[in-house]
C-alpha cells in the first residue's frame, strides 16, 4: 500500500469515475429515457442539494443513525465473534443461528421492528446494527479461530487470565480479519440506512431519494445516488486509514528480512 499509493493509484479512481460519468452521459443522450437524465444535469443538482440546509440536516440525520448503528454493531459483534472463535461450545450454539439470519435481508425485518418500536430512529438504528453485525461476527469468529494456540499459551504462561487473553491477545491477533468484517459491514450499513429510510420515510438521504422518485424528479434521484456513493467512498477511505494504522504489523512487507541468523 505504502509503495503503490504514489502516482498511478491516485489517478486510477479518478480516471474510473470520469469514465463512468462519460458512459452515463453518453447512454442518457443516446437512449433518451426520462428515467435516465444526463450525468451533467444530475451533477448540476449537487450544489443546490448540498447548499440546502434542510437537505444537509437530512444527510446528517442519516449519518448519525448509520454511525450509531455501526458502532453499536461493533461493540456487540466483535466480542461475540471472538468468544465464538475461542469456544467450541459457543460456536456450536451460535453458528446455526447465524447461518439462518445471515442471508435474510435485514431491511425485510424493518416492518416487524417498526411494529414494535415505531418508525423513528430506534427502528432504523436497530436494522443497521443487525445488518452490520453479521459480517463482523463472522469475520471476528474466523479471525479468532485462526489465532495460533501457542500465542495464547505464551500469554497464559506470563500469568494472563482468560478474559485478558481474549481482549489483549485474541483481539489484536484477529484484528486484520476483524477489519475485513468491518469493511463489509460499512457497505451494509449504507445499504440498510438507505433502505430503512425508504421504508419509513421521515428524514434522511433515503427519504429524499424516494420522495424525489415518487415525484419523478429524476435528476434529484441521481444526485442523491451520487451523494450516497461519495459518502460510502469517504467512509471507506477513513476505515482503510484506521485499519492501516492499527494492523500495519500484519501488512506484507517488501523488505527482505534483516540478517541471516
Amino acid at each position: 500500500m505504502h509503495a503503490r499509493a504514489s502516482s498511478p493509484s491516485s489517478f486510477a479512481p479518478l480516471l474510473a469515475s470520469i469514465g463512468l460519468l462519460a458512459l452515463w452521459e453518453l447512454a442518457a443522450r443516446l437512449l433518451g429515457i426520462t428515467g435516465l437524465p444526463p450525468a451533467y444535469d444530475a451533477l448540476r443538482e449537487l450544489p443546490a442539494i448540498l447548499g440546502d440546509a434542510e437537505a444537509l440536516l437530512n444527510i446528517a440525520a442519516s449519518l448519525r443513525r448509520m454511525l450509531t448503528g455501526f458502532i453499536l454493531a461493533l461493540l456487540l459483534a466483535v466480542p461475540v465473534g471472538l468468544c465464538m472463535g475461542r469456544s467450541e461450545r459457543l460456536a456450536a450454539a451460535f453458528n446455526p443461528l447465524l447461518m439462518i439470519i445471515y442471508p435474510v435481508p435485514k431491511a425485510a425485518l424493518m416492518p416487524i421492528i417498526m411494529l414494535w418500536l415505531g418508525i423513528g430512529d430506534a427502528s432504523k438504528t436497530i436494522v443497521i446494527t443487525l445488518g452490520v453485525s453479521l459480517p463482523v461476527v463472522y469475520h471476528s469468529y474466523q479471525g479468532a479461530r485462526a489465532v495460533e494456540e501457542k500465542l495464547i499459551w505464551s500469554a497464559a504462561a506470563m500469568g494472563m487470565g482468560r478474559a485478558a487473553r481474549l481482549w489483549r491477545v485474541v483481539l489484536p491477533a484477529a484484528l486484520p480479519q476483524v477489519f475485513v468484517g468491518i469493511r463489509t459491514g460499512l457497505v451494509l450499513a449504507l445499504i440498510t440506512m438507505v433502505t430503512s429510510e425508504m421504508i419509513a420515510r421521515q428524514t434522511g438521504v433515503g427519504s429524499i431519494l424516494f420522495n424525489a422518485l415518487d415525484m419523478a424528479q429524476y435528476t434529484t434521484v441521481y444526485a442523491m445516488i451520487v451523494i450516497v456513493g461519495l459518502l460510502g467512498f469517504v467512509l471507506d477511505v477513513l476505515i482503510e486509514k484506521l485499519r492501516y494504522s492499527l494492523v500495519q504489523w500484519a501488512e506484507p512487507t517488501h523488505e527482505i528480512a534483516v540478517g541471516t541468523s
Binding site: W153, S154, L175, W249
Partner: peptide, 19 residues
C-alpha cells in the same frame, strides 16, 4: 494450569506480531 514459574519456548516462536 500455566504459570510464570514455567516459561515455554515454541518451535513456532509464537511472538506477538503486533508488538
Amino acid at each position: 494450569g500455566p504459570g510464570p514459574d514455567r516459561g515455554p519456548v515454541f518451535q513456532e516462536f509464537a511472538l506477538f506480531p503486533w508488538k
